[in-house]
Design a protein around this nucleic acid. Structure first.
Length: 198
DNA sequence: ACGGAGATGGACT
DNA sequence: GTCCATCTCCGTT
């Protein structure tokens, strides 16, 4: 997969959720580079009552209606969640990134998580980024990233999405943590990954 | 100006 | 399994 076919894969949310498994998410700061591989996603397609865009355009969900490939970041309780906007401009859909596997810079992820969880148990090992809020902690992603173009060609961009080399085997299940459309098989997990949520 | 709800995570029984 | 921390946005007054 090249950059162009990754962009094309974001044409619709369900295809994008499948195509994003195995793709690479890179976070660059002054501390260094954190490289991860996406192992769990959820699709929130247009017209889905569980999608944030379902009720129409608002200030919070506006990036879902923007061009595909932008980060849609929102807050839930104490956590942030990272989504990739998909579909044609104005469409209002996206893919939630639910878990990533560390490839490089895991020590930076662990210290970021320790920083974000002061007074609580030190998160380690497979728990470092196995949830949507955890991955945002591990990669220091907050609402400041809402709207940024993840497909940028800038090599030093703070947050970048890169195409995968090969398609991993995947598992399909219902989505987690929602109260409507709970049965729809729209969660995608890299089969046998130890880094996915449970 | 107000109240409720939330695509979560961690601690605890 | 249950509880709840903590905050932004949104729909309603």
């Amino acid at each position: 997969m090249d950059r162009r076919s990754l962009d094309a894969a974001l044409e619709n949310a369900v295809g994008a959720a499948r195509a994003l498994l195995g793709c690479v998410l890179v976070r660059t700061t002054h501390e260094g580079v954190r490289t991860t591989r996406i192992v769990e996603t959820e699709a929130y397609p247009q017209g889905d009552p569980a999608c944030h865009a379902f009720g129409g355009r608002t200030k919070r969900n506006r990036t879902l209606f923007g061009p595909r490939g932008r980060a849609y970041v929102y807050r839930i309780h104490r956590s942030f969640c990272l989504n990739v906007a998909t579909g044609p401009d104005g469409c209002g859909e996206g893919v939630l990134i639910r878990a990533v596997e560390p490839v490089d810079g895991i020590e930076l992820m662990e210290s970021a998580r320790a920083r974000a969880t002061v007074g609580r148990r030190m998160p380690t090992g497979y728990n470092v980024a196995n949830g949507p809020g955890k991955l945002c902690q591990a990669l220091d992603i907050d609402s400041g990233f809402d709207g940024v173009d993840l497909l940028t060609v800038e090599r030093n961009a703070p947050l970048r999405l890169l195409p995968r080399r090969t398609a991993p085997e995947m598992l399909v299940t219902p989505r987690v943590g929602i109260s409507v459309a709970t049965e729809a098989p729209l969660r995608f997990v890299v089969r046998d990954s130890l880094w996915a949520s449970r």
